[in-house]
């Protein structure tokens, strides 16, 4: 363990952090929206919609993300003339966009299952109470169903976000130099696997600790009704 080498390694790896964060944030956002649509399709759609969502989830959860990335990045390159004609080649030749597409489609499958569980946690009484107050349609959705469902889904969704941060490492295999990509390059150049591993591991761990701390704060804020009530101060009248 050479501290100077580790400090130099840290500075190099930190250069990959923006790309790691960018990949994770973008794909969680896109995948979250897609996942929500899939969950709603599975719950409210007809038979074809339900079958489509079930097949989608089966395919994307049942095969490795790395193969999905390869299929999109290398596999679609085979249809270059057709993609050029459609104007999609500009996106699909970029490893960055291929990684974003694969990560988003993958996390959408997991998110849709998590969100579907959240929606199923909304009880019929809560919906009836909303209707009794005169809410319906979008208002009921926005004020009653969504808050309850999202709150219920948050712990599992938090895990999925952390898994996505780890999954961005796979983008390094299609030449994107994020933290793991830079670490792999450094290890191959210097053969000091342990030191580089420790520094890269520390970066991911601090990132994931920060994330899980933020998520637990959010969960705490969103569930005031589940906390024990604060004991009120006894009212002492000075004149009694």
């Amino acid at each position: 363990m050479d501290p100077i080498f580790m400090w130099e390694t840290f500075k190099v790896l930190l250069g990959g952090l923006p790309l790691t964060l960018n990949l994770a944030a973008t794909s969680v956002l896109i995948g979250g929206v897609l996942g929500l649509l899939l969950a709603l399709g599975a719950l409210a759609g007809g038979r074809p919609a339900r079958a489509f969502v079930a097949a989608y989830v089966f395919v994307f959860r049942g095969s490795p993300l790395l193969v999905q990335i390869f299929l999109i990045y290398y596999g679609l390159g085979q249809f270059r003339p057709a993609l050029q004609a459609m104007g999609l080649w500009g996106i699909l030749r970029e490893p960055y966009w291929c990684a974003i597409i694969a990560l988003s489609l993958n996390t959408a499958a997991y998110s849709s299952e998590i969100l579907r569980g959240g929606f199923r946690a909304v009880t019929i009484q809560q919906i009836e109470a909303g209707r009794a107050c005169g809410m319906s349609g979008l208002l009921l959705m926005r004020r009653i169903v969504m808050p309850i469902a999202l709150r219920h889904a948050l712990p599992a969704y938090g895990n999925e976000i952390i898994l996505m941060v780890k999954a961005t490492a796979l983008a390094s295999i299609i030449t994107l130099m994020e933290v793991t990509g830079l670490a792999g390059k450094l290890i191959a150049e210097t053969f000091r696997a342990v030191e580089v591993f420790v520094v890269a591991g520390a970066i991911y761990l601090s990132l994931n600790f920060a994330l899980s701390w933020a998520l637990s704060r959010l969960e705490h804020r969103l569930t005031p009704h589940l906390r024990p009530r604060p004991v009120p101060f006894a009212k002492v009248s000075p004149h009694a």
């Binding site: 191959a188 053969f191 696997a193 342990v194």
Partner: peptide, 19 residues
């Protein structure tokens, strides 16, 4: 459990292979 669930698997593979 905290460390190995918090870092990418690919890093562990690199460590074992090159290390």
């Amino acid at each position: 459990t905290t460390v190995l669930r918090g870092i990418p698997d690919l890093l562990v593979i690199y460590l074992l292979y090159f290390g």
